[in-house]
């Protein structure tokens, strides 16, 4: 059976002034899979993510999500196509409580308040933040804020999830919890694009890996292939 493609990038370019941050990137994400995106600092990982989620406007190329060509749509329109994302530095709504935080992506839904509330508490429970539900988000630790973002994504219930450095600054216990939840979501048919520095977790989770260096894809393939690709080793260690 040929897997269904949910996200496809072709020849994407993005420059800031004279600096070409993303160069001619092609990329595919299949349904119910996890694609990893790795690369050293400044490789263009977050820029690429911002282009996909509509925060940056790409210069050229094409972006298809669920078969809809949607390059340079506004972020909320991309979101309504079914793309959810987290941010490298957690971007939570700090002055409202956790339940309201989690509810935000579902505010446009046509559900009654009771269902909405119950779904929100369920999502919080899944990341073990239920007991803190009446606290304001600014009172959480950095790691808990990452979990809150994950709960918000679960509430959002998108088809494609973009995770930007989800494990950075999260302690090992919470990290295991997050990995467990990500695997669960994948089983439910969600597709992931996962950006991380943490190669161990990327290797553990990903079905397919893209390696970005200076804005270009220098290698792609399954975990074993990428791990042993001399070009990847050169990019990671050669400049060190």
């Amino acid at each position: 059976m040929i897997p269904k493609i949910v996200l496809q990038l072709k020849g994407l370019n993005k420059s800031f002034g004279g600096l070409l941050a993303v160069k001619n990137v092609d990329m595919l994400v299949n349904e119910s899979s996890i694609s990893g995106l790795i690369g050293i600092n400044g490789a263009g990982k977050t820029t690429l993510m911002n282009c996909i989620s509509g925060i940056y406007r790409a210069d050229s190329g094409s972006l298809d999500i669920m078969g809809v060509s949607c390059l340079n749509w506004s972020p909320h329109d991309i979101a309504r196509l079914g793309v959810g994302r987290t941010f490298q530095i957690p971007r939570i709504f700090k002055r409202i409580n956790l339940i309201d935080n989690v509810m935000v992506p579902a505010l446009n839904d046509n559900t009654d308040n009771k269902t909405l509330y119950e779904r929100a508490t369920e999502c919080l429970d899944k990341v073990k933040l239920y007991d803190l539900r009446h606290n304001n988000a600014e009172e959480l630790s950095g790691g808990q804020q990452k979990l809150l973002e994950l709960a918000r994504i679960m509430m959002f219930n998108p088809r494609i999830i973009l995770l930007d450095e989800p494990f950075a600054g999260v302690n090992p216990t919470l990290c295991r919890l997050m990995i467990e939840r990500i695997k669960e979501l994948k089983e439910q048919g969600k597709s992931f694009l996962l950006v991380s520095h943490d190669l161990t977790s990327i290797y553990q989770l990903s079905d397919h890996i893209y390696v970005l260096n200076q804005g270009q894809v220098i290698s792609e393939g399954n975990v074993d292939y990428v791990r042993n690709d001399p070009e990847v080793i050169e990019a990671y260690l050669g400049n060190a």
């Binding site: 989620s53 925060i55 506004s74 972020p75 909320h76 991309i78 979101a79 309504r80 959810g84 994302r85 941010f87 971007r91 939570i92 709504f93 700090k94 002055r95 409202i96 309201d100 935080n101 509810m103 935000v104 992506p105 505010l107 446009n108 918000r152 959002f156």
Partner: peptide, 24 residues
């Protein structure tokens, strides 16, 4: 109201609210 909740989310982080599907 839900409008109020959406507005408060925008106040705290407009980009994140946008990425969550709110028409900021």
């Amino acid at each position: 109201s839900r409008l109020g909740k959406a507005l408060k989310a925008i106040r705290d982080d407009p980009d994140a609210a946008d990425a969550m599907g709110i028409h900021v």
